[in-house]
């Protein structure tokens, strides 16, 4: 039995009919066509599906869509504004923090949450913030560099 819920995704309101077992990840990808949020393991272990719900990072594969009714969801598609990349996106591009790119959306949202709540994080704090996000390509070096650069206000 499907239920109507209201999701505010990247500032835009959507009315979606969802079944009780559907996850937020499935609704974003399959119902709303927002495929920037990736399915890496579907078990909450890799971080590729990280989105922000009411500003906080969650693994969207572990969140039931019905539980997000009325809440605000930020996905990677909403990170750039008016065609301008977010400073984190610019830094990820410039510093070579993106290889295959499959972990990138989740990584960027985890970093966004960090900087919004801790504008000047230490390297340790950066590492803690993205510890739940696995990357198999980069060895993390350039991801940490990119986040540090934004935190330190480096010209990009």
């Amino acid at each position: 039995m499907k239920r109507l819920i209201n999701l505010v995704v990247n500032g835009e309101s959507h009315e979606v009919a969802v079944s009780p077992e559907q996850t937020l990840l499935e609704v974003l990808r399959e119902e709303l066509g927002l495929t920037g949020t990736k399915k890496g393991c579907n078990q909450g272990e890799c971080g590729a599906c990280t989105v922000l719900v009411d500003g906080k990072p969650v693994s969207s594969c572990l969140v039931l869509a019905v539980s997000v009714n009325g809440k605000s969801v930020s996905t990677i598609e909403g990170l750039s504004q008016d065609g301008r990349l977010h400073p984190l996106q610019e830094a990820f591009v410039k510093y070579g923090a993106i290889q295959c790119g499959f972990c990138t959306p989740g990584m960027l949202l985890a970093a966004k949450y960090l900087l919004e709540n801790r504008p000047k994080p230490s390297e340790q704090e950066i590492k803690e913030a993205i510890n739940g996000n696995i990357c198999r390509c980069t060895g993390y070096v350039k991801i940490v560099e990119a986040i540090s650069a934004v935190a330190q206000g480096a010209a990009l």
Binding site: T37, I76, E77, L79, Q89, I98, G101
Partner: peptide, 21 residues
């Protein structure tokens, strides 16, 4: 030169499409 990946921008915005997408 230190050149960013050609497709890094579309990967950073979630626009890059993989087979799974």
């Amino acid at each position: 030169k230190r050149v960013p990946q050609k497709d890094a921008v579309e990967k950073s915005t979630g626009a890059a499409q993989y087979v799974t997408d």
